[in-house]
Amino acid sequence: MTLLIIFLMALITFSTRYLLIHPKIPLKLSARMVSFLSFSAPAVLTAIWVPIIFIREGQLALSLSNPYLISASIAVYVAAKTTNIYFTLLSSGAIFIILRITM
């Protein structure tokens, strides 16, 4: 039974990824739609990372004792200044580890 569920799940995850890039699907994107969709990457990725930072254990965690919030603020600053992914990861990661140990 579990095997069957896994195969059905695979069908679902593949379909959600593949369906809309299939050429036979009768779907033509207008210029407006393309312009709208150009915002998808920043919008979706942000909707993934922001809750990790601001919601801890199901609660809104806006206090300075939330190490995620402080480290993420540093990450945003470094990413904006340097645009270097590794530099951003290392600097904010180091701050995060220090905060986790000391707080």
């Binding site: 990457a41 920043p42 990725l45 942000t46 993934i48 990372w49 990790i52 930072i53 190490p67 995620y68 480290s71 993420a72 990450a75 945003v76 990413a79 904006a80 645009t83 270097n84 992914i85 951003t88 990861l89 904010s92 990661g93 995060f96 986790r100």
Partner: peptide, 20 residues
């Protein structure tokens, strides 16, 4: 429980912020 979910958040920050 080690707070490693910070890794994925900061990776996405590093990808999104420069694209603004």
């Amino acid at each position: 429980t080690l707070g490693l979910d910070f890794a994925i958040a900061v990776t996405f920050i590093a990808l999104v912020i420069p694209s603004i």
